[in-house]
Amino acid sequence: MAYCPKCGIRVERDNRPCPLCSFPIPKVNEDGEEVVRVRKFPKTTNPYPSYMRRVLNRIFIFITLLVFVAVSLMAYIDYELNEMFTWSRYSNLSVLAGWGFIFFTFGYVKNYYKVLIGIGLDMLILLFGLDLFNGSLDWFIPLAFPIVTGTTVVAILYWSVVRALSVRGFNVIGFFFIAAVILIMWINFFIQNYQNKTDPLNWLIVTVLQLLPVLLIMLYVKYGMPERIKQKIARKFHL
């Protein structure tokens, strides 16, 4: 039997509240000990990522619907005016390629390497289609394909080196400038080759001359810049 803590009358086990004074009688187990209910603290989860994910999903759905309407409308207008698809091929392909770029940059693909490869393939499809619509592949194979492929490869290598070497701080910027110079020279090589103006020796000299200032700046930042200035810049740009 149990007793009411307020008025003291005897009550049945788990008879809550007290039939006399309506006082809430605590639950007791078989041994007569009061069962204490432990209130758990709420989980300390950060709601911001899930909130941003919902916002991005809504934006992406809106953009997808807008792209569908725009592509359908341009194709319809083009066909009604010309009884065939002419200018709408270029515009629709560009719009769809932009949609693909948004898809890869909105976080639906988690792997960084897959994102880079996906964006590279998206650009290749766009440029291939634009060149093909002209009736022949004049500039895609000698110019667009190596440039886009080289850009994708340099981006993948840059990310791999940064991760493998655990590059931090100013070194990230230094490696980025080196990758940018290499990419610029890669693009310059194929542009000159496309224009039949390639001079390998001249191209090599120009490459070295462009890399040299970057290397000198990196050496100065690494060994010559005062530590106090480094810390200020690092705090300013969160390096």
Rank of each mutant, 00 (worst) to 15 (best):
K222L: 13
F177M: 13
M218N: 10
K27G: 00
R163P: 00
Y3Q: 13
I233R: 00
I77V: 14
R16G: 06
Y90R: 07
V36Q: 07
M218H: 08
A164G: 06
I9R: 13
L143A: 01
W186F: 02
F23Y: 15
N29A: 10
P17S: 07
K114A: 06
L56V: 06
L96D: 09
Y113G: 00
V206D: 11
V109G: 02
M218C: 11
T151L: 15
T152H: 01
V55E: 05
I59P: 00
L127M: 15
L93K: 01
A179F: 06
P47C: 08
P47H: 07
I141C: 06
W159R: 05
V69P: 00
T64F: 14
R228L: 11
E33C: 04
V67W: 05
F190V: 01
N46K: 04
W203M: 13
S94H: 09
L56S: 03
R54C: 07
I184Y: 12
Q195E: 09
L126P: 11
L121K: 00
G129K: 05
Y108P: 02
Y158H: 06
Y3I: 15
T86I: 14
C7V: 03
L143K: 02
V11W: 01
L215Q: 10
R10H: 13
G150Q: 04
G118S: 10
M52G: 02
L93R: 03
L66T: 10
A164T: 14
G224V: 11
D199A: 10
K43S: 11
L209P: 02
F106L: 10
V115M: 09
D131E: 15
W159M: 01
I9T: 14
L216H: 07
F190G: 02
F101K: 02
I233T: 01
L56Q: 06
L96Y: 07
V28C: 02
I25V: 14
F237Y: 15
W186Q: 03
T105M: 08
F60C: 09
V36A: 10
R39P: 03
P17R: 01
V181E: 08
N15R: 12
E83N: 14
L209Y: 07
F176G: 09
I102L: 12
E83F: 12
L212W: 11
D131I: 12
L116F: 05
P226L: 03
I25T: 03
C4Y: 02
V55A: 08
D138R: 14
V167Y: 01
L215F: 13
W203C: 03
I102D: 00
F140I: 10
Y3V: 13
I125V: 15
N92E: 05
I102W: 01
F23W: 12
A2V: 08
L239H: 10
L183E: 03
Y194Q: 07
A70S: 15
C21N: 03
W87A: 08
A97W: 01
Y79I: 06
I63V: 13
M52N: 08
L130E: 11
I178Y: 10
T44C: 05
F101A: 15
